[in-house]
């Protein structure tokens, strides 16, 4: 079920292995970066996206895509962060950094954000809204446009982003489409 996780400069959380279905499944707190010029062109998938948020940032011209699965809005402890992509604030910074390192241009970057639902109506699910706010805030700081958003609500989602044509399919729990 799990993809192998490779180390990157002492931090873990990058997924690069594609499963039998041609999908790259992102667990919570993990991220991936796809350069679709010379890599495979997998679908990046998240199954059961609840209060977490998935920011997708891409440069269509250079064909480079970064996506993560964030759990919390901000990081509290500064040292010893093993999974930076657990936190919205760090994740956006790291994603953009790595996108630029791989040849993307800041002015070309666009984004899609999905998730941040309140699955339980009262308990602990305020975190979904805080996650959305944190992601939007970081994107705004870097002046990255949000092209599409499917956020909030009370239902979990299945998200598939196709790195071949930059299309994004979102299915709500309990619906067939």
């Amino acid at each position: 079920m799990f993809n192998k996780i490779s180390d990157k400069e002492g931090q873990i959380g990058k997924i690069s292995k594609v499963d039998d279905r041609g999908e790259l499944v992102l667990p919570i707190g993990h991220y991936t970066l796809i350069n679709s010029n010379h890599n495979l062109k997998p679908k990046i998938a998240i199954y059961g996206l609840g209060s977490c948020v998935a920011p997708i940032i891409y440069d269509k011209k250079q064909k480079i895509i970064g996506m993560s699965h964030v759990l919390l809005p901000t990081h509290e402890n500064k040292d010893n962060i093993l999974y930076p992509h657990k936190y919205a604030d760090l994740s956006i910074k790291y994603l953009v950094d790595e996108l630029l390192q791989h040849g993307a241009e800041l002015k070309n970057l666009e984004s899609i954000i999905v998730g941040g639902a309140s699955i339980f109506k009262n308990l602990d699910c305020i975190i979904g809204k805080e996650n959305i706010k944190a992601v939007k805030n970081e994107l705004k700081k870097l002046k990255i446009k949000i092209k599409r958003e499917d956020i909030g609500g009370f239902k979990g989602k299945i998200l598939k982003f196709d790195t071949k044509d930059f299309s994004c399919v979102i299915k709500r729990s309990g619906s067939n489409s």
């Binding site: 919570i28 199954y47 059961g48 996206l49 609840g50 209060s51 977490c52 759990l71 919390l72 657990k86 639902a117 699955i119 339980f120 109506k121 009262n122 308990l123 602990d124 699910c125 975190i127 979904g128 009370f154 239902k155 979990g156 989602k157 299945i158 729990s173 309990g174």
Partner: peptide, 19 residues
């Protein structure tokens, strides 16, 4: 609090609370 959803989505709030 009640919900009917996927296991992934259901557990996310509790994970956030304790992580």
């Amino acid at each position: 609090d009640l919900a009917l959803d996927t296991i992934g989505a259901l557990t996310s709030c509790a994970i956030a609370k304790f992580s």
